[in-house]
């Protein structure tokens, strides 16, 4: 359960970061869409903060050494999954969001 929580946090972090990049934003929301600069900044900020929260979370649970191992390992794993999702089923990643 703790691990699943970590996975979700890291995934959300990377998800927001990927949306802050034009390429992935258009992959998810359609070719004509462009994120407004404000939105890009919002995605970037929330992405990095989510990753930071995930890092604090794992260090607080497993201690510094083991927490870093969990954090980095999970990051590799979830980022790989996200990369696959972005390539093969990007439309699934809208999660009911309505782009501006």
């Amino acid at each position: 359960m703790l691990i699943l929580m970590l996975c979700v946090q890291v995934f959300l972090g990377f998800y927001c970061l990927s949306l802050s990049l034009t390429r992935h934003y258009t992959q998810v929301f359609g070719a004509t869409r462009r994120a407004t600069p404000l939105r890009v900044r919002f995605y970037r900020f929330s992405g990095y903060s989510m990753l930071l929260i995930a890092l604090f979370y794992s260090v607080s649970i497993w201690g510094l050494a083991l927490g870093l191992v969990y954090g980095l390992g999970t990051a590799t794993f979830t980022a790989a999954i996200l990369a696959l999702l972005l390539t093969y089923m990007p439309r699934r990643l809208t999660f009911g969001q309505h782009p501006d």
């Binding site: 970061l17 990049l21 980022a79 996200l82 990369a83 696959l84 972005l86 390539t87």
Partner: peptide, 9 residues
């Protein structure tokens, strides 16, 4: 960073 998640088939 720009191509962190990028895989073009």
């Amino acid at each position: 960073f720009l191509e962190f998640f990028t895989f073009r088939t």
